[in-house]
Design a protein around this nucleic acid. Structure first.
Lengths: 159, 159
DNA sequence: CAACTTAAATAAGTTACTGATATATTTGGA
DNA sequence: TCCAAATATATCAGTAACTTATTTAAGTTG
């Protein structure tokens, strides 16, 4: 009946439903401090991957190139990032996180950890163990997913 | 050392890190069709919880009341929702999803399920089982989290 | 070294937000 | 009963954050 169930008990429809609910809550767990999702995404990406070109940020945030230029301009105005020339390519610019920018990311992360801690305290021990056991698989899926998102969005990929 | 590790193996810092990566990918898995996160959030909320007042939508989306009024106006213009008077309160309006609106939500959900299926196929059987075993706990956390988000954002809530 | 490509910036217009305020309805006493 | 306060939504004016189209500058190639 369902084409989404491999033979080992993970129904992808259930998974999608659970993850929809969960991510909807999770992304609201951290204090948002008047910043858009895209802005926070850029700061977070820079914190995780180090200085990047505008074109690399564009790819990771799924907006147009002028939008990134303007967003970085605003972030620079607010002292959260700095533009520096790319020594290996005179056309390019490397966007660096400033200490203030790193602090924003850290604060959000601490908030999230605090709230997650509060949530997990209310789970049963087996539930906590189940979540801990699933973490490597979730990380693996995130990595696989990142690769997929770089590929073209074909509607019906011919197999 | 870490205040975030209960005695049964779930380090919340690890959890937060994994979930950050995972949700960052997950929310981009579905086709976005030129709609903002907020817009999609409203459609999804209506699909999940039935007709709601503007003020209820406002609470679930964390934007100002005029933003919701305008967003619903745009959605109504595009035929995705309809406003109808609340029979129990002459001031209020109930926002209903139209069939076209429900279709948008369904398509996104199908997209997501398809992509998740592709991802989970590349996991090992134990990994899939681990994810399946964690689903109830994730749902529980989402539910607990939803309650927390409704509460006032007090820094030190008195018990 | 001209033609092409790539990286980022600029320009002009649109959309989606915000705070402040207005309108209509309900609620709760005097 | 009736009026003041509270509640639910709408409107208005201004700003922020995007879009497409175009421009500028620096690399790459035959």
């Amino acid at each position: 009946m369902s084409p989404h169930e491999p033979p080992d008990g993970l129904d992808t429809e259930d998974l999608a439903l659970a993850l929809e609910k969960f991510t909807g809550i999770f992304i609201r767990l951290a204090s948002v401090e008047k910043m858009s999702f895209t802005t926070l995404g850029v700061l977070h990406t820079l914190a995780g991957r180090g200085p990047l070109r505008l074109s690399e940020l564009k790819a990771s945030e799924q907006v147009t190139q002028p939008a990134i230029t303007q967003l970085v301009t605003r972030l620079e105005r607010d002292g959260l990032v700095r533009r520096r020339p790319d020594p290996t390519d005179g056309r390019a610019v490397l966007v660096h996180l400033t200490p203030a920018g790193a602090q924003v990311v850290d604060k959000r992360r601490r908030d999230r950890v605090d709230r997650l801690t509060a949530l997990t305290r209310r789970l049963s021990t087996p539930q906590r163990q189940a979540v801990a056991a699933a973490l490597p698989a979730l990380l693996e899926m995130a990595e696989l997913g990142a690769q997929v998102l770089d590929e073209p969005p074909a509607s019906s990929p011919p197999r």
